[in-house]
Design a protein around this nucleic acid. Structure first.
Lengths: 357, 357
DNA sequence: CTGAAAGCGCTTACAG
DNA sequence: CTGAAAGCGCTTACAG
């Protein structure tokens, strides 16, 4: 029973109105419940609409109403568990409000992010949700700020998860800095004094916040983080693997390694194993985010848990709540240090030379 | 520099036309390149548009053109790594074609799936991509078929990943059945004769295909799968954990367990560990999908690898390729058995009573 | 409560 | 090549 491919004219409001013997205006009102309609007429309209399987043309509606039922969501990569978790919360919230979700993946390209925003402006979305870290890049900030200003002038709400340097927008802020600091203190409590950090691209605010928070807490404990023990990598499993490898080849002096993202920690764990280093016996390892699987690794990963789905719901709610003119609203969401078996008290074994596979 | 909250009238084509001193028709043609426009006029239009930061109202365009630049994507749950992987491919492909992606998460509710389709029909999307398993449910099939028929009558292309029972739509089919059979043969080759299977909801075609493929291969080898060794669970980490626990409490007679989804295998692995069962020493474990993290588990998981991102790109390409009237196109994508350390030759140790934590 | 009419912002035959 | 005009499918003051 394949239906033929030819296009048929769409059923319009007019068709429904005619079938019900009323004017389009009345049909519209009956369907939308925007005004009182005599009961029997309403019945007839509803019946006709059901009969004809009428679905209003969303574009015509959006045009006539000068607003749509859509929200735009921009993230770096849907397949990254961090974003996927947040996106889940957004999708839930959207479903509750009967919003359509227009999704854009930037694949970490700043320019693409700007062009998505302007595309969504063209869609006249009700809100734009920026998920994921902003870029520490002046030109980008400038372009983004202008574009976002046009959006809000057009009536779109803007809200973000994470700090978006220089944009001054309503934000749900995971406490990256405080969380990393708390993690550092927990690791200090375990007895560690020598640390290394695997970071991501320094253009991402999240990266810098976590690094700075971690370092600050060390500094307060009178410990300096050796710059040579900070390795920059890509925010991915393989990025973590390579960064850990680089750290090892530089001579791993730390007893504890902080990967600024769980996904990097997963790769780091594999790298340590491949180099014959036992976690935590030889080196402790901690991550950040608490993405679903890290509790099932061997050893389970110590990390800072962020309520990902909750972040998604919150950012949607924030965007929907009427804005306060002149100032951006900030909602801070704390992270929770979760100590698992990947961290333990430091061992005294010298590690620097242990780089054999 | 917060912009005031008040809405400003949008910049329209008319504004651009006036600023450029031409008619809206000419402005439209210049902007879209749909017809020759005198060079100097075109320049003026483009300059004015840039100046005013003009973005066409996508709804007005869609209405006038009777078609949009959007595709609809429906999956069960974006945060599931399987869908996230496919979605990544879809997003890539969409970006290449400059399509907007309207995303819907059904959270495995058949009714919600139908209503998303009809919502997308209202959006006049160019294509609807059904990601993820269909439901083996007559009423749903009926409703879905009707709704999809209306969509294609309206000119929307439909394509799916996975088998959608009774819908007869263009599909990219991961070879679930053949993949599961190949896996079974590989496990037989390892020497296993006693198997158990952790399945998902029997209403999902994917579940049944994998189970049947696995069982068929066993049958061909003269081995029957004890129904008591088939446990139905939820498609999630915790579902796998519980299903494995149930299997153990029933008395685990199998030397090898097949979890029909990697995500369930992750939970099963944890359950085995919590019950003091070593994998693969006490019991071998295999999954299906090869989602990113399973190679980093301890032990790394034997599975059937599916090219997730590729599936996403293929389904998009399939939807875009002109349909063939009267018949649905099928593209089969094979899975690859990946043997890792979670499976080994069976041990002779009796397992049935080993249920101590 | 109901309907005729204008308008939302664009595109595209149709004349010129 | 250019412009005036009609039309896309809806909503919503405006009269009645």
């Amino acid at each position: 029973m394949r239906d033929d491919v030819g296009e048929q004219p769409q059923i319009t409001l007019n068709d429904v109105a005619q079938a019900a013997g009323v004017s389009p205006a009345t049909a519209s009102r009956a369907l939308n419940g925007t005004a009182r309609v005599r009961a029997d007429l309403r019945e007839r309209v509803l019946a006709a609409a059901g009969q004809l399987a009428y679905t209003p043309n969303a574009h015509a509606q959006a045009l006539a109403r000068a607003s749509s039922q859509a929200v735009g969501v921009i993230c770096h990569d849907v397949s990254d568990p961090y974003f996927a978790g947040i996106a889940r919360g957004v999708m839930r919230a959207a479903a509750e409000h009967d919003f359509q979700v227009i999704m854009g993946s930037t694949f970490r390209d700043p320019a693409r992010e700007v062009s998505y925003v302007s595309m969504m402006r063209g869609q006249r979305v009700r809100a734009i949700l920026l998920i994921g870290s902003g870029f520490e890049d002046r030109a980008w900030q400038e372009a983004m700020r202008e574009e976002l200003a046009r959006c809000s002038a057009a009536g779109a709400r803007i809200a973000a998860v994470s700090r978006h340097q220089g944009l001054r927008i309503d934000s749900v802020l995971p406490e990256n800095r405080a969380g990393a600091a708390a993690l550092a203190r927990a690791l200090l409590d375990l007895g560690h004094r020598d640390f290394a950090v695997l970071t991501g691209p320094p253009t991402l605010t999240t990266v810098m916040d976590r690094l700075n928070g971690f370092r600050d807490a060390l500094t307060q404990a009178g410990i300096t983080l050796d710059p040579g023990q900070i390795v920059e990598g890509v925010f991915s499993r393989d990025g973590g693997y390579r960064a850990a490898g680089e750290l090892i080849s530089r001579g791993l002096r730390a007893t504890c390694v902080f990967a600024s993202t769980d996904i990097m920690a997963v790769g780091a764990l594999a790298a340590f194993r491949d180099h014959g280093l036992a976690v935590p016996a030889d080196v402790s390892l901690a991550g950040f985010d608490d993405i679903p699987v890290v509790g099932d690794l061997t050893p389970p990963l110590t990390t800072v848990a962020l309520p990902l789905e909750e972040l998604g719901k919150r950012v949607m709610a924030l965007a929907l709540r009427p804005a306060i003119a002149g100032r951006s609203r900030i909602e801070r969401v704390p992270g929770t240090v979760v100590l698992r078996a990947s961290t333990s008290a430091p061992t005294r074994r010298p590690l620097a030379e242990r780089t054999s596979p």
